[in-house]
Design a protein around this nucleic acid. Structure first.
Length: 874
RNA sequence: GCGGACGUGGUGGAACUGGUAGACACACAGGACUUAAAAUCCUGAGGGAGGCAACUCCCGUGAGGGUUCGACUCCCUCCGUCCGCACCA
């Protein structure tokens, strides 16, 4: 036995088979037991799992196994987010059919995940590209359509003229298509939209209830939804001759600054601008230029804020006879508010800059609250020369009837006056826009509608679902294969029976992932969701994934759940009660002589005089060690999880992922770190091998345990409590540290020859080992089984309950308190746990170090915090 | 620009509601075992000063100030790093 090594790969295979044989991780609804739904964001089947997956799923598995041991009925499923562009790209590049490519990847990745020993219910596995999944997505869409949650309209989209498809914003890089490199055009296309913006207020409001979500994610969603309260109002226009020329409707959150209005501006796409552009060629050219810059954010940053005079003037609503110019301006967005603004250079930096350029009047309308009224005049005079505007809290000035009011009061006053005149209304605007879900792509869920010349848009009858993708498609030409398929799109109209055309757009893949968590509750059902199942399992109690989904996926899923509630598919509004966003896996980067990226496998690291040097393994030439960055194919700084699992085993890679770094922060992959984790697996295995015969004859705790026994029992229960709390709070690195300490404590007792005759120590050793095996089980499940077996059990530790910490053993009867003099630690004092304050004070004052520190000074005060600290103030 | 997070030894990090800063791990050094190596085990260590030594003293959680008997923790100012959003009226 001694000298042997734990053969992780072989034993892990064995234990995985045992779990599967007994169906330990299959979950069945059981209303008599409390449920716990733990879910990690399901992967895109790109081909192989990466370290990010390993970290994500290791964490989720700890939670799943821990909660199972705590007695919960745990649901822990896995599936595949299987539609998407990479499959089509593979088809274009390699001629493989997207389905073939995708399913092969799923098979490969399933095997990899299984080798990690995850406690998943594989019977619930789903793939979003499977008709058995997406038929229900189509049904949901039809229900949403009926419920008025869907709309179809023309909108501007990013269009790649080479690939002939719409691109998501994320796929536009510096104004160019990410694949083709062609400049992206803005095109008007008729698209399907889910009306998420109708629910902006709900989605915002309910963020407040998501207490177990990271503040950061809630803030990001709050900003994304972008609520602003303001006033929408109409201003009178006059033409060059001073005659009335209609009205201009604007939106502002700062209507209090109305007396500072020195111009108005509209978007180049505003009706007023479009109308004039028909006759004003210079304006038409200006507008064209402004639109061109609309795509790239970088260009926006540098873009000068300019305007083109529209030849109209705007009458000031409160100053008789005053008018200001009206411009078409490149910085006004048609999508937001009314596409028109009133410009006030006072508290608005952008308007201030614009006025300077256009040489318009500039004066402040808000003065800092601390300023004395006699200084207002000089403040006003010097204002145009300022480098930056004042936009803080303050008092209205230069504003007629608003003078002296605070900003909030002035806002309310102005709003009331407009409302009284019938010229305006208080309004709340959101930045959030409707979610365009149409994609001109093959590998996605077909949108189940039919276009008929006579009947218009006709939903596919539910009996005809699913609308499946045709298999005989070609990818040799750019564009949507569904569009050019010879007959797929030709159907008879379900309403009138005349020839009609199928919708050839497919859904954005974010639609697929917006309800998969609900489908997991009844993955084989003939309807999208079974109410008894979702009512039992949902919400997801703990969702774990990357921060990159903070907005899109998580916001869409929240909206989708609300929509499914409206249509009766679920009975709750929020899908994820708890969210955890884990950090990335990062690694050093290496570059060769020509600046080419080198993978860690191609590099040999050496220590020379305390300096780390890297050499190319094949040539021996020196390699530059670059910054530590997120593992990525482009930088080639990836490590393949399967290589590590094949060499060290799954437990080692899991343990490493959970050690050291707090789970929300990035973890740096290092060989030394993996070696350390591997050494610990060996150490535990050796310990249990040594312990087994040593504790074999022990039974129940003995009547009169000695010092060694009591010490070990106290350590066991203390570490058990600490680790339990840490795991429950997802602080795996802290739990790992507790397990290390606990292991050392056991090693100090178990197997020691001098304690072999101590029955109490042997009994405590058994108790400690049994606790340790179960504590380790969520993190290193295979090794834990091995250890459990070594202790003589025939049961599986994966099915064992979590040990209970005995609080009586944790609170020791003697405590060590620090003794401070004037706040500086001078000595320590061990007293009975319940010692009286007076006795503690007296004992503290007798300590040599304390006496010396006091130096005969008079004692002013003594603070005693029971069980913690004594502070003598002298 | 707006918003958020963070800043602790050589490194990753720990420190409960303000109460012994640096747990645990990595790396390092010394030692044991060994013919040797690997593996394993033991020991040491924030920086500085004094002492043969047990030990004692000073400094120390980005910088400066404040509150407190007592601050990594709370407050203010500043510096730095990272992230998100960004012409949103």
């Amino acid at each position: 036995m001694a000298g042997e090594r734990y053969n992780a790969p072989e034993r892990e295979d064995h234990w995985q088979k045992q779990w599967e044989l007994r169906g330990l991780f299959r979950s069945v609804e059981d209303p008599s037991r409390p449920k716990y739904y733990v879910l990690e964001m399901f992967p895109y089947p790109s081909g192989r799992i990466h370290m990010g997956h390993v970290r994500n799923y290791a964490m989720g598995d700890v939670v799943a196994r821990f909660m199972r041991a705590k007695g919960y009925n745990v649901l822990h499923p896995m599936g595949w987010d299987a539609f998407g562009m990479p499959a089509e790209n593979a088809a274009i590049e390699r001629g493989t059919h997207p389905a073939k490519w995708t399913y092969a990847n799923i098979d490969a990745m399933r095997a990899q995940l299984k080798s990690m020993g995850l406690s998943l219910d594989w019977e619930r596995e789903i793939a979003t590209c499977d008709p058995s999944y997406y038929r229900h997505e189509q049904k949901l869409f039809l229900d949403f359509l009926k419920a008025g949650l869907v709309t179809r309209r023309k909108s501007k989209v990013n269009w790649d003229p080479v690939d002939q498809t719409v691109l998501a914003n994320e796929q536009v890089i510096d104004g160019k298509g990410w694949r083709s490199g062609a400049p992206v055009e803005q095109r008007e296309l008729t698209q399907w939209f889910l009306k998420i913006s109708d629910h902006a207020d709900e989605l915002l409001e309910r963020l407040g209830n998501l207490e177990r979500w990271p503040e950061k994610v809630r803030t990001m969603q709050r900003n994304w939804i972008g609520r602003s309260e303001g006033l929408q109002f109409r201003l009178d226009l006059v033409d060059a001759k001073g005659k009335p020329a209609g009205e201009l409707e604007v939106f502002s959150t700062r209507q209090d600054t109305i007396f500072g209005m020195t111009f108005c501006a509209v978007s180049v796409d505003h009706p007023l601008a479009l109308k004039r552009a028909k006759t004003d060629k210079a304006l038409a050219a200006y507008a064209q230029d402004a639109r061109r810059h609309g795509t790239s954010e970088e260009a926006l940053e540098r873009l000068e804020k300019t305007g083109h005079d529209l030849g109209l003037r705007v009458a000031h609503p409160f100053i008789e006879g005053k008018t200001v110019p009206l411009y078409a301006a490149n910085f006004v967005l048609i999508e937001y508010g009314t596409g028109a603004i009133f410009g006030c250079p006072g508290p608005d930096q952008r308007d201030f800059d614009f006025c300077k350029k256009m040489e318009l009047e500039i004066f402040p309308v808000v003065a800092p609250a601390s300023m004395k009224p006699e200084d207002y005049a000089s403040y006003t005079e010097s204002y145009p020369a300022r480098a930056e505007v004042f936009d803080g809290e303050g008092i209205l000035i230069n504003s007629d009837f608003l003078d002296g009011l605070a900003i909030a009061e002035a806002k309310s006053e102005v709003a009331s006056r407009f409302e009284a005149r019938g010229k305006g209304k208080r309004q709340i605007k959101y930045r959030l826009r409707d979610w365009g879900v149409s994609r001109q792509r093959y590998w996605g869920c077909p949108i189940p509608v039919i276009h008929c010349e006579a009947c218009g848009v006709v939903p596919v009858p539910e009996a005809d679902l699913p609308v499946t993708l045709p298999e005989d498609v070609t990818f040799d030409k750019p564009g949507n294969p569904l569009e050019r398929h010879p007959n797929w799109k030709n159907v008879d109209c379900p309403a009138c029976g005349k020839p009609a055309r199928r919708e050839t757009d497919t859904f954005d893949t974010f639609v697929d992932s917006s309800w998969y968590f609900a489908r997991f509750c009844s993955p084989q059902a003939a309807v999208p969701t079974v109410r008894s199942a979702v009512d039992y399992w949902l919400p997801v109690d703990q969702y774990i994934g990357g921060i990159e989904h903070a907005i899109l996926h998580l916001l869409y899923s929240r909206f989708f759940t609300r929509a499914m509630e409206t249509t009766g598919h679920v009975g709750l509004a929020e899908p994820f009660a708890g969210l955890f966003t884990q950090g990335m896996v990062i690694h050093e980067t290496y570059r060769g002589a020509k600046g080419e990226w080198l993978s860690p496998a191609e590099v040999r690291i050496e220590d020379k005089d305390g300096k780390r040097l890297a050499f190319q393994a094949s040539t021996g030439t020196e390699v530059r060690i670059g910054p530590v960055e997120k593992m990525s194919k482009s930088r080639r700084n990836t490590v393949d999880p399967s290589d590590i699992i094949g060499h060290y085993g799954a437990d080692t890679i899991r343990w490493f992922m959970l050690s050291d770094s707090p789970p929300e922060r990035d973890v740096q992959w290092t060989d030394a770190g993996v070696d350390g984790a591997w050494r610990f697996t060996q150490r535990l295995w050796r310990l249990f091998n040594r312990a087994a015969p040593w504790i074999a004859s022990s039974s129940a705790p003995v009547m009169d345990p000695g010092e060694a026994a009591m010490g070990l029992r106290r350590a066991a229960h203390k570490h058990l409590k600490n680790a339990t709390d840490a795991i429950a709070a997802l602080r795996f690195n802290v739990a790992v540290a507790q397990i290390y300490e606990f292991t050392s404590a056991i090693e100090a007792v178990v197997g020691k020859d001098e304690l072999a005759a101590d029955a109490g120590a042997r009994a405590a050793g058994r108790e400690a080992c049994e606790i340790l095996a179960r504590m380790v089980a969520p993190m290193m499940p295979h090794l834990a089984e091995e250890c459990w077996q070594l202790l003589g059990h025939s049961s599986l530790v994966a099915a064992e309950s979590w040990p209970e910490a005995d609080s009586a053993l944790i609170s020791e009867d003697k405590v060590t308190m620090a003794v401070q003099v004037n706040g500086k630690r001078r000595d320590e004092l061990t007293v009975a746990r319940d010692a009286a304050k007076e006795d503690i004070e007296a004992a503290a004052l007798k300590l040599e170090n304390v006496v010396r520190a006091i130096e005969g000074r008079k004692i002013k005060k003594i603070i005693v915090v029971p069980q913690r600290i004594v502070n003598v103030v002298a």
